[in-house]
């Protein structure tokens, strides 16, 4: 069981990281959400797997037998809530960014960067050192 969960965690993390490495900013946002899901799964597995009973002592009993560890479940709930808020924020941000910047290509998002050619870094006059930005021949 734990090996299946471990495999699931790593597959989720790998897919999330793969999406994050994309140049499409929307995919990056989705990738972060997927990575978050993988981490949450790992957090859930940090208790112990197997028992599925709620950690509530039944009426009339004194001992709790075979219940799952409630703490990782509480932690993962908190993490999901926080992750949910961040995913909401990142989607709103990405939508606004794509709308205002007019592109969803991370390489063309240079508004906050000093690029050769902007006012902070004037282009070099020697054509041998002329800036190749944005790189030509991109699809």
């Amino acid at each position: 069981m734990i090996w299946a969960v471990a495999a699931a965690v790593w597959i989720t993390l790998a897919s999330g990281v793969y999406l994050c490495l994309s140049r499409d900013v929307f995919r990056v946002a989705l990738g972060l959400a997927v990575v978050g899901a993988g981490v949450n799964l790992a957090l859930l597995a940090s208790g112990r797997l197997g028992a599925g009973l709620p950690a509530v002592v039944p009426k009339g009993e004194q001992l709790l037998v075979g219940a799952s560890n409630p703490l990782p479940q509480a932690l993962v709930l908190t993490a999901i809530v926080i992750g949910f808020a961040l995913v909401c924020f990142s989607l709103a941000l990405v939508l606004g960014l794509i709308r205002d910047a007019g592109t969803d290509d991370a390489l063309e998002l240079r508004a906050a960067e000093p690029v050769p050619g902007d006012e902070v870094k004037p282009p070099q006059t020697d054509p041998a050192h002329a800036p190749d930005w944005p790189p030509e021949g991109r699809p």
């Binding site: 808020a85 909401c88 709103a92 606004g96």
Partner: peptide
């Protein structure tokens, strides 16, 4: 309040 705010902002787009 918080999530409705987010959702409405996204829908308004």
């Amino acid at each position: 309040g918080a999530l409705a705010g987010y959702a409405l902002a996204l829908l308004a787009v």
